[in-house]
Amino acid sequence: MKLTSEHRDDGLIVRVEASRIDAAAAVQFKDSMRRIVDGAPARVVLDLSQVDFMDSSGLGAIVGVMKLVCAKRRLELAGLTANVRKVFRITRIDTVITIHSTASEAFDGLKHAS
């Protein structure tokens, strides 16, 4: 699974360049994220706008990454497609993680707020 990252202000945008985070991809996704967030700034925004399918294994991997970074950093999400949003809503994980409509908005919004 290809992940690309881009530094932005105080944070890092990580883009998932794949259409699925499913049971067959979840372990690899978590491993790749672990490498990327090691040494990342305090705020990591995961851009999921290209992901049109995520199952409970993919969701578990994202929660795993949240737990992995929580001591020093904060994981936020952006760009959830309709199918992915449904998974977060039903499991109520959308209540324990910040979700932005787009990755750019995650940073622009912060500027306006300050």
């Binding site: 409970s56 578990g60 991997a61 929660v63 949240m66 737990k67 929580c70 039903i90 499991t91 324990v96």
Partner: peptide, 25 residues
């Protein structure tokens, strides 16, 4: 069942979501 999420981030469950999704949908 709905997962227990009223806890510290490090205690969040990483599994058990599958049957919740199946039953809901």
């Amino acid at each position: 069942c709905a997962a227990e999420l009223d806890c510290a981030v490090e205690d969040l469950p990483e599994g058990g979501f599958g049957w919740r999704l199946i039953r809901e949908l």
